[in-house]
Design a protein around this nucleic acid. Structure first.
Lengths: 197, 197, 197, 197
DNA sequence: ACTTAAACGAGACGGTACGTCTTGTCTTCCG
DNA sequence: CGGAAGACAAGACGTACCGTCTCGTTTAAGT
């Protein structure tokens, strides 16, 4: 991503301790009070080293979060559309909980006035989840469980939108039952008069 | 809300020029680059005067935006539920456009790591719009156009959620046609097998 | 002194509580940390009332100190020049002790970059003491105990100068024995070869 | 003296421009109206850099004045005690002229309510002059020109005291003739009945 | 006693400077 | 020669006082 200097010479130990320090500090003081100075101090690294490889604290956090998120196992395929979507949604909700202290929530807030960060955040952290979502829905279309002519972007907004709505106004993340209700309603928005297809 | 000191002696001219300066500067440099220092300078006011009446730049902007938002006329009642909801939604979308430079988008981002601001933002700017939404839906329930047992919070999430989803990821605000699609789908989520009621 | 407004309507109670508050606060926090705000608050008086009657905190303190100083009894005439000078000097030393917290030391410091205050300080607080000194020396000249052609300004400098020298460099005020030595030496500076003239 | 951080990494160019700016500004507006803010601006330096190396504007001025004072050549030894003392005294008087605008006079005033500054001022600026004075007097004692049992502190007070007395009350610094009179009288205070020794 | 002009308390106001903080760049020294 | 250590310029932060300026409310002089 940023990495202008020769990535071959990069010191992996520094990179690790920076990402770890960033996550630790974010958990301790929250994304808003996090500073590059503090990350450097905690990581035992000079600020220069951070700025050499990342353009901002947001970029650091994005790398840190991305790495953790990748480590999480893929969602199983159960065959039931609502169940699978709910599982995907639950994973996103977990990323955003607790909404204060969550690095991802902090990144989202920062991305709102940082176009570049917004782009990176979308492409690296969000895109894979959107892709999973789209893929599962397309499978459902092939299986005749979902209207073939449905607009997947609209579906995405209906399923994930309420999560961000709640996040933005500190309304708390939904529990399992609420996720169920949410997915059920969202899918029903695509029901046709004559059945599910 | 904020106003700790004696509000009777407050200088209305100062208050006005502060709110105006805040909105002007936000439009010029964006919420993120806005500073209390600059607001004071532009308004011809001492910083102390700002801090006397507001705890942060967010609180200032909230007052400024709130005042403007109040000045906007109420939405007409057309009798058609989808049309009325779409009009309400369009008004909210207008508040968030353009998403950079929009004071409201800036407030939302800041509220994500400022509990007090989040509370004020919700209660003063968002609550009236939720109330309108709920009221219109209850009217629809009385008219038999909407299921009497529907959960209005879920409905709120389905209608407004997608807007915040788009806002958060810099996806651009929906145009009229997209709003139409959105409201149509959201309402259809509450259709029962045997009709609309 | 300052008093531009009608002195007849002046509120004596306010004046008293301002001067008292000034002395109290000076004793508590020292002249340097003393503020007009604090004096007004302590005295239960508005800042305007202070600025109506005095041009600066220095002027207030000068009034306060002057009033106290006037209340002190005059020095007795013993007939012995050295003894009388030492008594006068001891009174001045008392005014300057302790050198921090002493309002007079604070006034002296402030007077060093405030010409008007320096003038008032000299005329009201210092002049009477110089006059006593001069008067006593002239009496000694008439009595033949001091050379008739001696320059009294030089004598003043020799007697009082060392006090200010010590004050300025935080060297502590002299005790009785040191005062004695001081006066003895200073007077001896005017001894002629052939005796005391 | 002050210098808490690692002095090895200190930027000499910054140090120089700060001290120069301080002296310039003091000459222009006077010590009382001098601000750290203005020094930083004039020196093209951030305020942080000043506060990193000095605790107050007084400490900055002391360094600036000290450096200049060191550059002045030592006083010649003429063999005549009165002449040598008068020369030393004249150098001090020059430091304090003009009494407004003089950085040293400002430092003295500030030192009166700042113990730490008073200490540094005494040790760095005053002490060398006291040492010269004492040394010259001890030489005179060895030469039999000054009583062997005289108290040098008392002598110091008699010679230098009148200078501070005049400084404090805005009486103007003495000219050459007055310095002569002053030293003559001060030395005569140590004359014994039977001669100069 | 009645009026009326002032002095008063309270405290908001425009300013100025404070001393601290963080950012992102630049420099120095050590291994 | 790379990196930690950290100094640096820039500039906003939120606070403290300054001295000025309304506000109503006493309060005491001169009717």
């Amino acid at each position: 991503m940023p990495t202008p200097p020769n990535p071959l010479r990069r010191n992996e130990a520094s990179r690790r301790s920076i990402l770890d320090a960033a996550l630790e500090l974010c958990a301790e003081v929250g994304y808003g009070r996090l500073t590059v100075e503090a990350i450097a101090a905690r990581a035992g690294v000079s600020k220069k080293t951070i700025y050499r490889w990342w353009p901002s604290k947001g970029a650091v956090m994005l790398d840190a979060v991305d790495e953790r998120a990748k480590a999480v196992a893929a969602h199983p395929y159960t065959g039931d559309l609502a169940t699978d979507l709910r599982n995907q949604l639950a994973a996103v909700v977990a990323l955003l909980t607790p909404s204060d202290r969550s690095p991802v929530a902090g990144l989202i807030a920062e991305a709102m006035h940082d176009d570049e960060l917004a782009h990176d955040l979308r492409e690296r952290l969000i895109r894979p989840r959107i892709d999973s979502f789209d893929e599962r829905l397309r499978q459902a279309q092939r299986d005749g469980q979902f209207p073939a002519d449905a607009d997947l972007d609209v579906a995405l907004g209906l399923v994930y939108g309420p999560i961000y709505h709640r996040l933005v106004f500190h309304l708390g993340m939904p529990d399992a039952a609420q996720l169920d209700t949410l997915v059920t309603h969202a899918l029903r928005a695509f029901v046709t008069k004559s059945g599910t297809s």
